[in-house]
């Protein structure tokens, strides 16, 4: 449940942006790599708990999980890897994992009158 600290960090950035734009945030779009181990339900639950009775309690999240990529040493191709079945489409198990995508708050939709 490290989503709690992620939710707290999100709240800090979102409230800052809301003050800057002087508007109510409605949707926040997030992207993250597989190795961030983010569970959508746990993150939304944690945020709801923090945001209760605030301007942010109805905020919805759209979370994009970016696949992790690897480079095959046999066929030299880059491919999206399934961590549950770590092998290249060519069948090789010799590959190098490429950098995982970081956790990013990409976009916020603000309410306009």
């Amino acid at each position: 449940m490290h989503e709690m600290m992620v939710a707290q960090s999100l709240m800090a950035i979102i409230s800052n942006e809301a003050a800057k734009h002087d508007a109510k945030p409605v949707v926040a779009r997030i992207s993250c790599g597989m190795l961030n181990s983010i569970n959508d339900e746990a993150l939304c639950f944690a945020f709801e708990a923090i945001a209760k009775d605030t301007l942010y309690e109805d905020l919805k999240f759209q979370i994009e999980h970016k696949p992790i990529r690897a480079r095959c040493e046999t066929c030299k191709v880059e491919f999206e890897i399934e961590l549950s079945r770590p092998e290249c489409p060519c069948g090789s198990e010799k590959f190098e994992l490429l950098a995982d995508a970081p956790l990013i708050l990409e976009e916020i939709d603000f309410q306009t009158d």
């Binding site: 950035i13 508007a23 990013i104 708050l105 990409e106 306009t112």
Partner: peptide
């Protein structure tokens, strides 16, 4: 609805 580009690392404080 106004869409605003943020592009911030969420764990930047920890980082």
């Amino acid at each position: 609805m106004e869409k605003v580009d943020i592009g911030k690392r969420i764990l930047r404080e920890n980082e």
